[in-house]
Write a protein that binds this DNA or RNA. Structure first.
Length: 476
RNA sequence: UCCCCUAUAGCUCAAUCGGUAGAGCGAGCGGCUGUUAACCGCUAGGUUCCUGGUUCGAGUCCAGGUGGGGGAGCCA
């Protein structure tokens, strides 16, 4: 910045952290005006935010500043400013400290205040999705951004402290069937005029990678390979699903945390998921008390107590078979479900909700599902009917974790693939892990956006990711 | 992909039986005030999503389309 006096800029969060001890010190802040209120007594009040914390800081701009009439009185919501001044104890109510300005530089004005999309008033989330490039300027999305960051850092912190190595698994994959839904094609071929094989099919041997490639739907198969050498690993990055899902819980591009542990069984897997979630939420309450207070005040009054409740008690663990029994017992007592409950079929959303919300009231680890409703790589249990799979169901959001102990025995794995119509040859490198020093191992996927929804009470995953990708929507 | 709901001012919404467009907030201007979801007054602001149909007349009824929302399925 070209400014006459050189004061190192402060973040607003650190001014609030220092509080009244900073009174009297000269400071510079840089940010955007939220609101301006004028007093004809000869001052204007500017609420200025730089995004470093929830609260904006109040800047007191006296009318004798040289640009008061020409610039400051024209600067409203959304305008960017650099303010030099002195930290002062506020004479008004509502804030402890404020900045008595000696200089206010209006860096960028707002073209047309009447049509500036982020007005100083409540907006619907549906509307804000249409101005996703400006919505980080609102209270809610600023808070989401900081909460998301804190939770992401807590993920890395937990794994780092517990001896896990972060593996950067690839985004582009040559596996055309990772077993988790429709995939987005990656290609540099001319869509209008692709090369053809003699049979008339598109000739992907002429494509960039010399084969069909897609965006990954899961880093699991790749991360398992590194698990078989580094013992405890995880991947944390974006994943892509081309499902035509139109719900508040699904995105075409979402972030997933997938740890994988060698010499671990299903119980250790559930232990890890529980400890990870508890670490994330502990850090959240410690670091983002201001933002969580906002969510509790304006979005979901239960959100802090829900997180505290999760932290204070162990997750309930229940076998799928027991879950079905509980649901049947509930039906006997008069509970109505739209869909029938039957051992061997996947539970409906309403069934999962009953278990976690009504029966237990906390997250539930549901374990040992029927093998026919689960993926090929999940380890067969000795009963011949179930596999060592677990889902963690959370009140309000449903499934936030899906995991399993993996099938480490080659003959079992091959048999399962054939049974499910998969060709073992397509998985040659995955099978190699079972041929060379195979060990029992387990892992899971934690949906990052669903975790944020759970913690904040936000109603839609589209509003907890900076730029939501959903069917028919990729404007920004 | 299926079911239901929905689209009016910058935003959130209203408009009776089909009769010719209204409020709040926001914005601009003025007043008042160490203000703080400020307050008081005035002013501006409309292709009623698109295409077609019914009707003397359509924001309103009908058909198709598009966008948005909720639920289901798929899953994280």
């Amino acid at each position: 910045m070209n400014s006459p006096v050189s004061i190192p800029p402060s973040r607003i969060a650190s001014l609030f952290a220092t509080g009244s001890a900073a009174v009297g010190t000269p400071v510079r802040i840089q940010g955007w005006i939220r609101t301006r209120r004028d007093s004809k007594a000869g001052i204007s009040f500017l609420q200025v935010s730089d995004g470093s914390c929830f609260d904006p800081i109040q800047v007191v701009a006296p009318a004798d500043l040289p640009n008061y009439q020409s610039e400051i009185l024209k600067a409203g919501a959304g305008c960017s400013v650099v303010v030099d001044g002195t930290v002062a104890a506020s004479q008004g109510k509502g804030q402890g400290i404020e900045i008595q300005a000696s200089r206010v530089e209006v860096v960028g004005l707002v073209d047309d205040p009447d049509t500036y999309p982020i007005q100083p008033k409540a907006h619907s989330f549906e509307y804000l999705r249409e101005v996703a490039h400006l919505r980080p300027r609102t209270n809610t999305f600023g808070a989401i951004g900081r909460v998301r960051h804190t939770l992401a850092m807590a993920v890395h912190e937990y794994f780092h402290q517990n001896g896990f190595v972060w593996i950067h698994t690839p985004i582009v994959t040559g596996s055309d069937c990772e077993g988790a839904g429709q995939m987005f094609r990656v290609s540099t071929l001319d869509l209008a005029n692709p090369p053809r094989t003699p049979e008339g099919k598109v000739d992907f041997s002429q494509d960039f990678f010399g084969r069909e490639t897609h965006l990954t739907v899961s880093g699991q198969l790749n991360v398992e390979t590194w698990c078989m050498a580094l013992s405890k690993v995880y991947t944390f990055g974006p994943t892509f699903r081309a499902e035509n899902s139109n719900t508040s819980r699904h995105l075409a591009e979402f972030w997933m945390i997938e740890p994988e542990m060698a010499f671990a069984d299903l119980s250790a897997d559930a232990d890890c998921a529980e400890a990870l979630l508890k670490h994330m939420f502990t850090r959240l309450l410690a670091e983002r008390a201001d933002d969580m207070k906002f969510f509790a005040d304006r979005i979901d009054k239960e959100c802090i107590s829900r997180v505290e409740k999760l932290l204070s008690s162990p997750f309930e663990r229940m076998d799928y078979t027991e879950g079905v029994k509980q649901l049947e017992a509930a039906i006997t007592k008069g509970q109505k479900f739209e869909y029938p409950v039957k051992w061997g079929t996947d539970l409906q959303s309403e069934h999962e909700r009953y278990l976690t919300e009504t029966l237990v009231g906390r997250p539930v680890v549901l374990m040992n599902y029927p093998k026919d409703i689960k993926a090929f790589y999940m380890r067969a249990n000795d009963d011949g009917k179930t596999v060592a799979a677990m889902d963690i169901l959370a009140p309000g959001i449903g499934e936030i974790v899906g995991g399993s102990q993996r099938e480490e025995r080659l003959e079992f794995l091959d048999a399962r693939m054939i049974e499910m119509g998969l060709n073992p040859k397509d998985y040659w490198w995955y099978r190699d892990l079972r041929r060379y020093g195979s060990v029992p191992h387990a892992g899971f996927g934690l949906g990052f956006e669903r975790t944020i929804v759970y913690a904040t009470g936000m109603a839609n995953v589209r509003d907890v990711i900076p730029f939501a990708r959903t069917p028919k929507n990729c404007e920004f």
